[in-house]
Write a protein that binds this DNA or RNA. Sequence first.
DNA 1: GTCTATACTTGGATAGAC
DNA 2: GTCTATCCAAGTATAGAC
Lengths: 207, 207
Amino acid sequence: MTPSDGRGSETRERIIEAALETLRQDGFAEASARAIAARGSFNQALIFYHFGSVANLLFEAFSQRSEDQVRRYRAAAADVATLSDLVGIARELHAEDTASGHVTAVVQLMAAAHDPQQSRALLDRFEEWIAIVEDALRRATADTPVASVVPYRQGAYAIAAMFLGIELLARLDPERSEAGDVFDMMAGVARLIEQLGPLVAQAMPQR
Amino acid sequence: MTPSDGRGSETRERIIEAALETLRQDGFAEASARAIAARGSFNQALIFYHFGSVANLLFEAFSQRSEDQVRRYRAAAADVATLSDLVGIARELHAEDTASGHVTAVVQLMAAAHDPQQSRALLDRFEEWIAIVEDALRRATADTPVASVVPYRQGAYAIAAMFLGIELLARLDPERSEAGDVFDMMAGVARLIEQLGPLVAQAMPQR
DNA sequence: GTCTATACTTGGATAGAC
DNA sequence: GTCTATCCAAGTATAGAC
């Protein structure tokens, strides 16, 4: 489609980088071709040459990074054995995002989406994230009573949604974000479930 | 500040209504003075006469509605006695939002905020929501083991964040939203905690 | 208080030189 | 493949008639 489909083009990469940075720092509303070009110190016209439109650029930028991250987190999730591990990954992902702003960018794109086609594309991508959480959740609760109570799919959906909400709030005022405290709390709950598991399991049949 | 600070002005109300409706249906990116005016079938210039700027209008619209809703939900939350009640309220709020789109509008404003002052104002408003959840949570778990394990503040923050995330996702494709299933799941968990409570409480001291 | 008309600004996008 | 210049559309905002 694009003139330089040699993928790894030097400039393409620079443009994508600037686009994500703009999305993260200034938000979607401010992510104009001119603003992005200014941030990356390149010519505004390059965006249209390489990506056709700003909307296209933003989506491609997200799409490419998502692919990378999905690969990485799928690997990390494969090592999850306990609920504590799962919370640990979430905490790590959030910490990374504070620096890279990738999830923040996703939230921006989701909130700004208006054409149904793009909305669906975003949801399809997000589906991969949910699947990773679901997979980790399944493995983490294999031998706990949670397994028979919380449907994995919905549990994963809820966790993923919560993560989006946290990133949404964190961008408003990083200083005031309580993400760290929330992860601490969840870590505590995870530990408790792990410890109480056997006991509850014993009690469950009476239910 | 505004010319007609008689608050209840007929037109002001019409403008606010149209603004929220536009925010809900088309999202922030499309909520221009022209679009809002078209939706409400009034003159575009009225927005500037009554509110000074589009940004101002959107914030005032949100602010006014938030006040109403906070009042209503604070009352509803006062009647919460169990976790199941809490889930019920959440489900109800979500159902209402599917029609009114108020929370959706909040998410749009949050995502689009860029000036620190407005961000802080939004967070301050959101603080009230968290407080309501926290209050309900405290009452709902008074005599369950959860009380001694989940810090109320963080629990409420997490729940509120999840709610925002769900609304964010629901707007992308209402058909595909799994909000209903999530509430079902939470209802199940709530029931379980209520039933298992005494047992776990017995076990807890051994921890 | 509301409408028409319009000035001004910003952003998307393209043409054409290099 | 990159830059300059420019066109055009859309949006904010104001002036002034009614």
